[in-house]
Nucleic acid binder design. Structure first.
Lengths: 345, 345
DNA sequence: TTGTACGCGTTATCAT
DNA sequence: ATGATAACGCGTACAA
């Protein structure tokens, strides 16, 4: 392993260690010739500064922690979502010389956000997939009291004062419902998501707000609970099939459920965009190529990641303070064939 | 932020700093009462050891780097693959007190595997999505010369001496072809993947080996190049449709392409499992719920991640040496409806 | 069983 | 423009 220390570079260059640092960090005045000598020596010795020592003296690790929730089936459920956000974070963070330290959450333990801060492993944190509840809240309060820079992505907390980057789910849901309405659908069923996430409620509120605006009466039979898995969508399909006379369209809280539902109904001979309207949420990859392609609401996960990273970076630079900042990125309706206008309207 | 140092704990407990360390690290003999006092003091002060200082003196960062390849559309192409492997790594690494440092590769730059080693940011590395070619090879040789522990996942390098964890693609391809044959298919087309990856060749070799064994003649028209994207599969579908009389089944080098191809042919009225046989590779999520569900070869990405992590951990512990170790995890044929036995065989 | 003292490789301050 | 030197917070011989 390379084992050249600053000391040796200094000796070879015939200068002091301090000068070596100055040259390599580009600080302070340095005679051009000295500079050259140092650079040469460093090059020759294959010297690379030890980032641990650097971190030590600077009192910052240079990493930002990314907390991934424990989902029994991350692998099955939220692949798309997290990959996108992570890519966004990585994209933003790359040029700033920061590193990402992945933090996998443990199953039933309390969320352990503060530990890596306490041990100085991370300077800031981005928290993904936070759920509602007192436990999360307590963990966040702790972070706030420590004045630890952190940003929650994809969740809203009533008692805020936290930094949050989210999408405008409510508006997205309204767009979706409005679109169904404009396509001639009137009896709109709603497959909801896992109630542990704030954005599940957001979507539902959006739906109902738009119902009110459009004068669509509320029908509790048309509300089917799901949990964002494809399976739960499939099962929702089954439940709705039993009352197929009562709905002519479905709003599903995410694409996976929409696709599961579409599949069940297809097995019963009902085709989305022909026998009923169907709109999903997220615009994940599969939505473009399921059959028929799914109308959905595009959520800018990648940008959410970027934005969150940006915020943390700013906080670390002192450019932004840690206080409440809730940002909701806009979503966008993506119209595909699953909501073709019904002829018999 | 928490700011209690070891010194204060020592004072409060009325012992020396060394003793504090001994207690907290559980080394050396310590009188039980001393132990208790120290623990109490630490608790009371909210003391957490500074991992930077610790790393500094131990000369190891405690992180292992995970290199993600630069793929213009990671987001579209390889989500499933990487999520799985990453989860596997995380799962294995969690209990060992190691952290994962994500390393996003830059576009056209040389692979920069060695830098984080040189700067002591990581103690070991897991490299994902390595491509064939002199550049990668040079980068790996450099690591080897540095005696840096690293493990390449999902790739094979002829000049090895590297540590590699991979899947038995060749065997998987043979299983797939054999299955098609057993289902009565005889004229098997082959949609290949991106030739920059070693496992692309592996699969193709497997196919041809099995062709030979079964006495299936080689027909170059039935080989359609793809690049693992769904789009390329769709296009392959178009090409094959033009010569639809000449093939009765398709082996696609991954599921995404298989699904794209299935989609194109469906648009032309050809149904997989009825009008032709279709088998994919990977067993990604979507394969279970496309229509018809796709017969495919399951690749244990999650386990590959675990295994790679395990190897690095062992290397760091000195339990395993850095030399050549190529491990190929077994794959498994998953039969679904896309290869239903043809009736007219 | 416990304390003393040194070193890990930097950055940054203060002289020079 | 450059050189000493003091931290940074911890592990660990070695001494007691």
């Amino acid at each position: 392993m390379s084992t050249a220390k600053r000391k040796q570079v200094a000796q070879l260059a015939g200068v002091s260690e301090a000068t070596v640092s100055r040259v390599l960090n580009g600080v302070g005045p340095v005679r051009e010739e000295t500079r050259r000598k140092v650079l040469e020596a460093a090059e020759q010795l294959g010297y690379y500064p030890n980032s641990l020592a650097k971190s030590m003296v600077l009192q910052k690790s240079g990493n930002i922690g990314v907390f991934l929730p424990y989902v029994p089936k991350v692998r099955l459920i939220s692949t798309y979502y997290f990959s996108e956000i992570l890519s966004g974070i990585g994209h933003e963070v790359r040029e700033h010389g920061l590193s990402l330290l992945l933090q996998f959450q443990s199953p039933d333990l309390e969320p352990a956000y503060s530990l890596p801060f306490r041990t100085k492993k991370i300077d800031g944190a981005i928290i993904l997939g936070a759920r509602e509840g007192e436990r999360e809240l307590a963990a966040f309060r702790e972070l706030r009291e420590m004045e630890a820079p952190f940003c929650v992505v994809g969740a809203r907390f009533a008692e805020s004062g936290f930094c949050e980057v989210d999408a405008d789910y409510r508006h997205g849901a309204r767009l979706a419902v409005r679109h169904l309405y404009e396509q001639g659908y009137r009896r709109i069923a709603c497959v909801t998501g896992d109630p542990h996430y704030s954005n599940t409620l957001d979507r539902e509120q959006g739906v109902h707000a738009e119902f009110r605006r459009l004068g669509i009466p509320h029908d509790d039979h048309l509300r089917v609970p799901g949990n964002y898995s494809r399976k739960s969508g499939y099962e929702a399909g089954a439940r709705l099939y039993e009352i197929r006379g009562r709905f002519d369209a479905v709003f599903a809280a995410n694409d996976r459920m929409a696709i599961g539902l579409m599949q069940y109904l297809k097995e019963q001979g009902m085709e989305a965009g022909r026998d009923y309207g169907l709109v999903g949420f997220d615009d994940e990859d599969a939505s473009r190529w399921c059959d028929p392609p799914l109308t959905t609401v595009r959520v800018p996960f990648f940008d959410m990641g970027r934005r969150a990273a940006r915020m943390i970076i700013d906080m670390l630079n002192g450019t932004r303070d840690l206080g409440e900042t809730r940002e909701e990125l806009p979503v966008e309706l993506v119209v595909r064939r699953s909501t073709a206008r019904i002829s018999s309207a």
